[in-house]
Lab assay of single mutants.
Amino acid sequence: MDVFMKGLSKAKEGVVAAAEKTKQGVAEAAGKTKEGVLYVGSKTKEGVVHGVATVAEKTKEQVTNVGGAVVTGVTAVAQKTVEGAGSIAAATGFVKKDQLGKNEEGAPQEGILEDMPVDPDNEAYEMPSEEGYQDYEPEA
């Protein structure tokens, strides 16, 4: 019985440690998101679009440190934060509304985080759909 109880105690310690790591990862992701939003706020009209992409990228980098179902929630929060940063930029006159959601080359930025393969159960990952990809044929 002692062996059984000791095993359960060790398992509990492992769960607590994993929860603490997840909590730490979420806190880091939130900190990076805040950094990115402050970065966007300090940019001029020309830099705002690039700044919004930076927020998304920093958040995406930190999301990889967070495991399990938390990833889905962090990704949703990050996307809403990026959308909010863009709205703030438009409201303050840093950028025109028609410039939001495009990178410096004018290509749409939507789907940055949505296409990231995420499995809350950590069982399997699927690649994003290939609808947006084109076949590449090298020139002879």
Rank of each mutant, 00 (worst) to 15 (best):
V26C: 04
Y39T: 12
G36E: 06
E131D: 09
A85W: 03
V55D: 01
P120Q: 05
V118K: 12
Y125S: 14
P108V: 15
K32F: 13
L100K: 01
S9K: 14
K58C: 02
Q109T: 07
A17F: 10
G7P: 02
A53L: 14
S42T: 10
K32M: 03
S87E: 01
V74Q: 03
V71M: 03
H50N: 13
D135T: 11
I88T: 06
P108D: 10
K6C: 05
G7V: 14
V70M: 07
D115V: 13
K34D: 00
K6P: 00
K102W: 13
E46T: 12
A140E: 12
G51F: 01
A76H: 11
A107D: 08
V37M: 09
A107R: 13
V82C: 11
E126M: 11
E139N: 08
K80L: 11
Y133C: 14
A89R: 08
I112P: 05
K21H: 07
P117L: 06
T44Y: 08
G84R: 05
A27L: 13
S87I: 05
Q24T: 11
K97A: 11
M127T: 08
A19M: 15
Y39C: 05
A91V: 04
K21V: 09
A56G: 02
G25H: 15
V70I: 15
M5Y: 01
K34S: 00
E105C: 11
D98I: 14
V49E: 08
I112L: 10
A89W: 11
G14D: 12
P138G: 11
T81I: 08
P108S: 08
Y133P: 15
T59M: 08
D119F: 12
A17K: 12
Y125A: 07
A140I: 04
A107H: 10
K58S: 09
E83K: 06
K12M: 06
A91H: 10
G41T: 09
G31M: 00
K96Y: 15
E137C: 10
E35D: 03
A30N: 00
P117D: 07
T81V: 10
V77E: 02
G106P: 12
G14P: 01
D121V: 09
K34P: 01
A76T: 13
L8V: 03
V16M: 14
V37F: 11
E110M: 10
K80A: 06
E131F: 05
A30F: 03
K43Y: 14
V55S: 03
E139A: 15
A69R: 15
F4T: 00
V70R: 02
E104N: 07
E130G: 06
A53M: 14
E123K: 14
D2S: 03
E104W: 06
V66G: 02
L38E: 06
E28A: 05
A78T: 06
K23Y: 08
D2M: 00
V95T: 15
A76K: 10
K96P: 15
V26Q: 00
G25C: 15
T54Y: 11
G14I: 15
E57W: 07
G31V: 07
K60V: 12
K34F: 14
Y125E: 13
M1C: 00
K21G: 00
A124L: 06
D115C: 07
V74Y: 03
G84E: 08
V48E: 01
A27V: 10
E104F: 10
K97G: 13
M5D: 00
Q99V: 13
F4A: 01
T33F: 02
M5L: 02
A17R: 15
Q62H: 07
D98W: 04
F4S: 00
D119I: 01
K12A: 06
Y39D: 10
V49Y: 09
G73L: 15
A140M: 07
P128V: 04
V16P: 01
V40F: 14
A76D: 07
K97T: 14
E20S: 06
A89N: 04
G41N: 01
A124Q: 14
P138I: 02
V16Q: 04
